[in-house]
């Protein structure tokens, strides 16, 4: 069996201290396997966003640990941590986070720029990523001039451009109508299938979660027993 991309062991995260202490995660363990699509489902306030931030190494857990490719992430410091974030992860956010005044191409190549890739190479790879999402003709347009679906495709191109091992999609279809939403979903799952990019989708959309290979449900900072619930569902279905 190959090493999981990410493993979390008894992950806890608290904010504040004393009387105002709030435990966002109360001991979560699971793994994200190479090439799978995993849905992290939960209501808002359940701790799923905190979980995603910890998985993406944007935050440090209060207790427990995250292993990236089998290596404890807390060993990564400074430049090594930044390099791991840059090379390993791609992000697709609900609010896009595109820089409005810049061209589509400039937005897409931002991770490459941060990685220190040369100008010509950046352009080549940026255009390739845009072509993959049928946006090559929009490369010179301003990001603010695009429709919502186009923007989300630009965001996917940006997530894709640095050949990440894993793409985090935080409510990727939340701001889109159902038709554009499903086409964006289609793109994400196609990348997962065809390019083997591990996909972690954070969502409260049951339909989107159902399309993933596997799902984990977060409730009040704990994982709901996935298998037991699945068994129960199966049992119900059988009955």
């Amino acid at each position: 069996m190959t090493t999981p991309v990410l493993q979390v062991e008894d992950l806890r995260k608290s904010y504040g201290r004393g009387a105002t202490r709030f435990d966002a995660l109360k001991g979560v363990s699971f793994e994200v396997r190479q090439g799978e699509s995993l849905a992290i489902v939960g209501k808002s306030g359940s701790g799923k966003s905190t979980l995603m931030h910890l998985l993406a190494l944007l935050d440090r857990p209060t207790e427990g640990r995250v292993l990236l490719h089998g290596e404890p992430a807390e060993r990564l410091q400074g430049a090594a941590l930044n390099r791991a974030r840059n090379k390993t992860f791609g992000f697709v956010f609900q609010q896009f986070f595109l820089t409005p005044g810049q061209s589509v191409l400039e937005n897409v190549i931002l991770p490459l720029k941060i990685a220190g890739v040369g100008r010509a190479e950046r352009k080549r790879r940026g255009m390739a990523a845009l072509a993959q999402l049928d946006l090559a003709d929009k490369a010179k347009n301003k990001a603010s001039d695009l429709s919502g679906g186009q923007k989300q495709r630009v965001v996917i191109a940006r997530a894709l451009v640095n050949d990440p091992a894993l793409i985090f999609a935080d409510e990727p279809t939340g701001n889109l109508d159902s038709a554009t939403g499903s086409s964006v979903e289609e793109i994400l799952f196609r990348l997962n299938r065809e390019q083997g990019i591990t996909l972690v989708v954070v969502t409260h959309d049951e339909d989107l979660a159902a399309r993933c290979d596997r799902r984990i449900t977060v409730r009040d900072g704990l994982l709901v027993d996935v298998d037991a619930e699945a068994d129960a569902e199966l049992g119900e279905a059988a009955a």
Partner: peptide, 16 residues
């Protein structure tokens, strides 16, 4: 703010 956050999430160092 968001742009800075995004760049940092993408591995841009505080120094840069």
């Amino acid at each position: 703010t968001r742009e800075i956050g995004l760049m940092k999430a993408m591995g841009m160092s505080s120094g840069k």
